[in-house]
Amino acid sequence: MSLRLSTVILPVHRWHEGGRERWQRAEELGFHAAYTYDHLSWRSFRDGPWFGALPTLTAAATATERLRLGTLVTSPNFRHPVTLAKELISLDDVSGGRVTLGIGAGGNGFDATVLGQEPWTPRERADRFGEFLPLLDRLLSEDAVSHTGTHYSADEARNVPGCVQRPRLPFAVAATGPRGLKLAARYGQAWVTTGDPKLYEDGTPEQSVEALRGQVEKLGKACADIGRDVAELDKVLLTGFTPDRNSLLGSVESFVDFAGRHRELGFTEIVVHWPIPDSDFAADQAVFEEIATEALGRLA
């Protein structure tokens, strides 16, 4: 099974002070895709620079030629399907059809209350996502959409000429629970996971592998339930949140070992964070670039 390697470039650098160069370097290094987080602020980066995801990706689209671009991930926390669809169609056009939308139900971070609302319960997040994703699918696939829902509505929403990618740009659906996995099975061209968050602090790499194996099996069942072949979906692992996160980018050898174990589980794409000094994503830039250019060759 072939494996692709991608990166996440957090939007923490001014475009003309290192931002552009990172996206261009990602293309030079041969990454399959470069993603960014779609938050308004995030964890330890809250009090520092943090730029918008879709404008950043639009700029990256004009600065690169081959690199796929996307979000990991967008959520309903501060977005509406109608306006998001218009922005995504525009981004897909600017990029020449190189956009993947990573999308999930969202969480309880700063984005959950930044508009002045009370944070949604897990059930409400799932309810909203269950309405948000099907509507977005229609908005990106049809010229005109009207819909009246519990949480999201559209009245003659026009999206001509639609996406460059047909019938629409691909969805990479982040999910681990039963309702989210059903959405991934029905609407996803890819599935995204970060592993089991309960193992983040005290778990072992072996426990993480078994937890991910279980998630892959549940995705397979969700696909089987609707008569879809799970092999049609790419399986994307966003790294940095598993017990072996601190050694992952320590050397080419450690990354090759990690990638090989997760390829055996069925993953088709592994995503690593572009190094950021003095953060949870600190790593040696030279080693990171060596991994980008050599690791997959050693897996062959």
Rank of each mutant, 00 (worst) to 15 (best):
A175D: 09
A175L: 05
A175N: 08
T176H: 09
G177V: 01
G177T: 04
G177F: 02
G177Y: 05
P178S: 11
P178C: 04
P178I: 02
P178R: 08
P178L: 06
R179P: 06
G180A: 09
G180E: 09
L181H: 01
L181S: 04
K182L: 05
K182Q: 13
A184L: 02
A184S: 12
A185K: 03
Y187R: 00
Q189N: 05
Q189C: 05
A190R: 12
A190F: 11
A190P: 06
W191I: 06
V192C: 07
T193G: 06
T193E: 10
T194Q: 00
G195R: 05
G195V: 03
D196E: 09
D196R: 01
D196H: 11
D196T: 06
P197T: 00
P197V: 00
P197K: 00
K198E: 14
K198Y: 13
L199Y: 10
L199T: 01
Y200I: 04
Y200A: 01
Y200R: 04
D202G: 01
D202L: 00
D202W: 00
D202E: 04
G203W: 10
P205L: 05
P205A: 03
E206R: 03
Q207Y: 03
S208N: 14
V209L: 12
V209H: 08
V209W: 11
V209I: 11
E210P: 00
E210S: 05
E210W: 09
R213W: 04
G214Y: 05
G214L: 03
Q215A: 11
V216S: 07
V216M: 05
K218E: 15
K218P: 10
L219K: 11
G220M: 13
K221V: 11
K221A: 11
K221F: 14
A222R: 07
C223R: 07
D225S: 10
D225N: 13
D225K: 13
D225C: 08
I226W: 14
I226E: 07
G227I: 14
G227Y: 15
G227L: 15
D229L: 12
V230I: 14
